[in-house]
Amino acid sequence: MGTITRVAGALAAATTFTLALPAASALAGPDGGCGKGVVCLYAYYGYNYDGAYPRDLWRDFAADEPYLGDDLWSEGRKGLESGRRVDDDSSSVKNHAGCDVVLWQNPFYTGAHSTFADGRADPFLGGSEVGNNTASSLSIWCV
């Protein structure tokens, strides 16, 4: 009887602990949003296109990504996958990862690259070393 009571008490404590955990941080979202703890890539310059035919393609990352060809853009407010690959298709970036982020021109962290300090954003990657529509991997460097 004592063992059952201890197990029940442990389960109750674990349940209480699980319920007390903080909510996950906000991630990238439509309209150029970018939450804390992630780096956000956007398919269009200026954190997406809002002209005559608006497109809202975005993707967030909380860890290294050796090959962006495995990732698809999220689209619009619902965040549904667009079917369009992120690889060689990023035009702007926001870094809220809490560490430096490096965008690499080639898969597996090779080729030309650009480093973005935490809090830095670039509305048009065309002026960076990595270039516009050429990023194929990203790494997050916490020292």
Score class of each variant (00 low, 15 high):
T134M: 09
G69R: 02
W58N: 00
C40P: 04
T16P: 04
A121I: 05
N48M: 04
A62C: 08
T5P: 03
A121K: 15
L57F: 05
Y45E: 12
G83F: 00
W73A: 01
G119R: 10
E75W: 04
E65P: 05
A12S: 12
S139R: 14
R120I: 15
D88R: 11
G111V: 00
A112P: 10
S128I: 10
G2P: 06
N95V: 06
A117L: 14
A117T: 15
P107F: 04
G32C: 12
I140K: 02
A10G: 10
L27T: 14
R6I: 14
R77H: 08
Y49I: 02
S82K: 03
Q105S: 08
R120G: 09
C34M: 09
A24V: 13
D87V: 06
T15M: 03
A62S: 14
V143G: 14
G46E: 14
G51Q: 02
L72P: 09
V102R: 13
G83S: 03
A14P: 02
T134D: 11
S90M: 09
L11P: 08
G33Q: 13
P107W: 11
G37N: 05
N106V: 07
G126D: 01
V101W: 06
G126R: 00
S128Q: 14
S74M: 09
G76S: 01
E81C: 03
Q105N: 04
F108N: 15
G29S: 11
A28H: 01
F108E: 13
L125D: 00
R85E: 11
T18M: 07
G35D: 13
S114I: 03
V101N: 01
G119A: 07
G127C: 03
C34T: 06
A97P: 04
G29M: 01
R85C: 04
D88P: 05
P66D: 01
D88Q: 08
R55A: 14
F17M: 10
A52K: 08
L138R: 01
W73F: 06
G9L: 08
H96R: 14
R85P: 07
G69D: 03
A26F: 03
D89I: 04
A24M: 10
G37Q: 06
T115S: 15
D50C: 05
A8S: 12
A14E: 10
